[in-house]
């Protein structure tokens, strides 16, 4: 027995509502992030990730209330991302009951922000989100603004730099695979996982349960993140765990 690989369902939230159409049977209000989080907890999710997709100033208070509500009844780790730009944003989310925050474009604009955040709150709660695109053979670069804006930064060098700046974990999304259901970019995941000593969460492209297994076995991911396959009840988290365990992966079931 050993440390288990983690399955992390991800909710995209806009102004207090789950978007990208969650379609659950047996849930009263499928747009309520608290109900959805409760459901995932019951199914055995190892953590929950919630991304504020618009992250406007007005939405911020709504997000804080949502985090408070989830943290009051779901007792597994909760990561909040989207619009985390200042130390004050982190403090508010942690005080509301989040365990980790995910920093994305703010790290690209000003890498020292990651250092300051890690020193102030501890590396264990600082996740750096990396959105990467393949730009040539064995070469990936960081993109911001949902994959629209290139930065010219090499993804592997960036991951190493973020670890040295105090990131506690990396949430790695392949912008090429995101939404395709063709599976993770396992080459990218493997390259980054081997380059750093902190855990790497693979994200982007899950369409089948075998894709989750591949993310761990081929990509070397420590955790796998998925949204739509769980939201639409194509598969439950329990089924995902059974499949991965049958493939010889250590899971919490």
């Amino acid at each position: 027995m050993a440390l288990a690989k983690r399955i992390i369902p991800c909710l995209d939230v806009d102004n207090g509502r789950v978007v990208k159409g969650v379609n659950f049977v047996g849930i009263r209000d499928a747009g309520d992030p608290v109900e959805v989080a409760r459901r995932y907890n019951t199914e055995g999710a190892d953590e929950i990730c919630m991304l504020d997709i618009t992250a406007t100033h007005e939405n911020r208070d709504t997000m804080v209330h949502t985090v408070e509500a989830i943290a009051g009844e779901v007792f597994i780790p909760l990561t909040i991302g989207g619009g985390i730009r200042e130390l004050e944003d982190i403090r508010r989310m942690l005080n509301a009951g989040a365990d980790k925050v995910s920093i994305n474009s703010a790290a690209v604009f000003r890498p020292e922000f990651v250092k300051e955040a890690s020193q102030k709150f501890g590396a264990q709660c600082i996740v750096v989100a990396i959105d990467a695109k393949n730009v040539g053979p064995e070469k990936w670069e960081i993109f911001t603004h949902g994959g629209r804006k290139e930065t010219g930064i090499d993804a592997i060098e960036w991951a190493i730099k973020m670890e040295s700046f105090g990131a506690g974990e990396i949430l790695l999304t392949s912008m090429d695979r995101d939404g395709t259901k063709n599976g993770f970019d396992n080459d990218l995941t493997r390259r980054i996982s081997d380059a750093v000593n902190i855990p790497v969460i693979a994200s982007g492209g899950v369409g089948t349960l075998d894709h989750l297994t591949d993310g761990v076995k081929e990509g070397g991911a420590d955790a796998v993140l998925a949204a739509s396959i769980f939201h639409f009840q194509e598969y439950t988290i329990q089924e995902a765990k059974e499949t991965m365990r049958s493939a010889g992966i250590e899971m919490r079931v």
């Binding site: 027995m1 440390l3 690989k5 190892d46 000593n197 420590d222």
Partner: peptide, 21 residues
């Protein structure tokens, strides 16, 4: 430490993060 390994010799990451027995 930075060179932690399991019984099979696989490299283990630090921090120890996640669910363990």
């Amino acid at each position: 430490g930075t060179d932690l390994r399991d019984e099979q010799g696989e490299h283990l990451k630090v921090p120890h993060m996640g669910w363990n027995n």
